[in-house]
Design a protein around this nucleic acid. Structure first.
Length: 414
RNA sequence: GCGAGCGUAGCUCAGUUGGUUAGAGCGCCUGACUGUGACUCAGGAGGUCGGGGGUUCAAGACCCCUCGCCCGCCCCA
């Protein structure tokens, strides 16, 4: 068609979609607040460096998925592909190290140049929770608990499962990485093409390969467990214990790794099988080295991001929006009285719908279509006696109400 | 970025081996019902068949390109 189209991978949020979207966001915001996480926001674009340094130059997101552009001043800017880096940058920029643990909730659009698919768009929206400045396993537990609580509040927990793993601290991870490279290098001939590349870029990700031959190799690969130092394994054990204490079910997934360089220790994903290949609805982990990478003082942190579109696809019907009251003037003489009445009732807090034109029949039809709770009719009959006809559209009954009492009468409707 | 499938009214879809003015259901508009919705009935509007090119006497159907959606891979939320 030659009609204008939205850019590939972007979507309009028409009112019905928006309602689902908003419901996910509002539910998450409210639940985060219960845990003491206040909402904040950072700019939608940052200096490219912020993402390149934190996420890792070799990550797919940085190397081929960022929407980067040169500003008029000649500096490289990037539309944010995720929230964590920006929040950490804000943490540093605003000198918030005195406010730790810094607990925040955020939500907004993200941008990645990917091949669109169901649950994967170029502009998508995330909810995000971060806890910066806490090295304790209790922080990991809390952050995961927020995620589980949100999924519970959205009524989708039964469709999701929590997978969790540890990536250890720098020392453990480095030792394991070396062992993996050594192992896989000895079996290069049976590695898939993708995994050969992973061997160079991020060997841990070979563990997550879906290739059959890779999987055979992975079966016999060195186990991370054997390379975790005692701090790392104790830390992970504490996290798991804390989850059990709260009754949060999880399954250990030793192959769960992250594509972004900044993760350490705890890595987790709430996954679903209901969305095809894009199964992760909430995912995150600990990022103890990130703040330092950005130039801040060494500060631990943990957080996660959730895909709003993915969650919106999982939830059932969203709570119905407020039902309006339709004001229907009958005849020209009533128009101005009705307009004033509508205005007054809105000031009183009622949701009022008044059509711009049409006879009673049309306006009633419109009221019905808008799911109005009731209709208020005012014609010459009513005008003469200072009353109006209040019709309950659910019950199909109507009665006369004095104009002075109408606000209260509407308030009494369920 | 790689491979597969699909694009026909606002929506969900029919459209026989290429053959005259492209159909249905739902929705929308109008009327029956000029002060009363949901039901019913009767009319009506709305398509350059995603776009461009090609083959043919003839293309919505076949071929090429392109755009978009979608499935898997990749990656991730």
């Amino acid at each position: 068609m030659s009609l204008p189209q939205p850019v590939r991978g972007t979507h309009d949020l028409l009112p019905e979609d928006f309602a689902r979207h908003a419901h996910v966001q509002a539910t998450a915001r409210e639940m985060a607040a219960r845990f003491g996480y206040a909402e904040m926001a950072t700019p939608i674009f940052e200096f490219t460096e912020v993402f390149a340094r934190t996420m890792g130059e070799s990550s797919d997101v940085v190397s081929k998925e960022m929407y980067s552009f040169e500003s008029r001043s000649g500096e490289s800017m990037t539309l944010r592909p995720e929230y964590t880096a920006g929040i950490c940058r804000a943490f540093i920029s605003n000198g918030l190290q005195q406010n730790v643990p810094f607990k925040v909730f955020a939500a907004g659009p993200m941008f990645r140049y990917e091949r669109p698919q169901k649950g994967r768009q170029r502009q998508f929206h995330q909810i995000d929770v971060e806890c910066i400045g806490a090295a304790e396993a209790k922080a990991d537990i809390e952050v995961i608990a927020i995620g589980a609580s949100i999924l519970g509040a959205l009524g989708v927990m039964q469709d999701c499962s929590l997978e969790i793993n540890t990536l250890g601290d720098q020392e453990s991870r480095q030792a394991y990485r070396t062992a993996l490279v050594e192992y896989f290098s000895a079996h290069k001939s049976s590695l898939s093409k993708d995994s050969l590349e992973r061997l160079e870029r991020n060997p841990l990700r070979i563990l997550d390969s879906k290739d059959k031959d890779d999987r055979v190799l992975v079966e016999k690969a060195p186990l991370f467990n054997d390379y975790l130092n005692s701090y790392s394994s104790d830390f992970f054990a504490e996290v798991l214990e804390g989850l059990s204490l709260l009754g949060i079910d999880y399954s250990l997934n030793r192959r769960l790794v992250r594509g972004l360089d900044y993760y350490t220790h705890t890595a987790f994903e709430f996954v679903t099988t209901a969305l095809g290949a894009q199964g992760a609805v909430i995912a995150g982990g600990r990022y103890d080295g990130l703040i330092e990478t950005l130039g801040g003082k060494p500060t631990p942190g943990i957080g996660w991001a959730g895909g709003i579109e993915r969650l919106a696809m999982l939830i059932g019907d969203v709570p119905a929006s407020i039902r309006p009251i339709a004001i229907i003037p009958v005849g020209d003489a009533a128009e101005s009285v009705a307009a004033k009445l509508a205005h007054r009732l809105r000031q009183d807090g009622h949701s009022i719908e008044m059509a711009f034109k049409g006879n009673v029949g049309k306006r009633m039809k419109r009221a019905n279509k808008l799911n109005a709770r009731a209709a208020v009719l005012i014609g010459e009959d009513e005008l003469a006696r200072n009353v109006c006809t209040l019709r309950d559209l659910d019950q199909g009954e109507q009665s006369e109400v004095a104009l002075s009492d109408i606000s209260a009468a509407l308030g009494a409707l369920s």
